[in-house]
Amino acid sequence: MKRPEWWTIAITAYCVWNAHDLAAAWTDAPYEREAWLCLLIWLSPIAAAVFAGKRPQPSTPLLIAALGLALSGAATSVNFIGDTGAAVAAAAWTPRHSRQAVWLPASILWMPVSGWIAHSLDPMPLLALRILLSVAASAWYAAAIVRPHFTEKRIS
């Protein structure tokens, strides 16, 4: 398999670095403690693709979109935009499939913005709901990736 080019790794690394405030949120914000579990679950399709030997070449359009979002997040100091950039950068490294269109928006579940949107709920039930939805979206996508006859599809 062809090695990824350095600029694809640079964009991904920048987008991940740009979302570094997530660590502080997971440490200090009561609504976000343990929300890192949602990220671990959400990343499982990438692990599934690696173990199934179906790791694709990164998607250039998604990486450009991720860089644009990360820059917008940096310029506005709005974490949600930067976090979305990190999610899109991660998605660039996953196989293209229509189920990605459900899995990628599910990234909001590990972002602090979902805690803010749903803060009328208590933190623990909200965390349970976020984990449950993360498992559902990630498992559905990962199941498609690990199928023996998996073929990449364009998101329609």
Partner: peptide, 18 residues
């Protein structure tokens, strides 16, 4: 040009943030 643009964009993002 694309690779140079990537480097410049990342540098711009870091400068803006800091």
């Amino acid at each position: 040009a694309f690779k140079i643009g990537t480097v410049l964009a990342i540098a711009l993002g870091i400068a803006w943030e800091t």
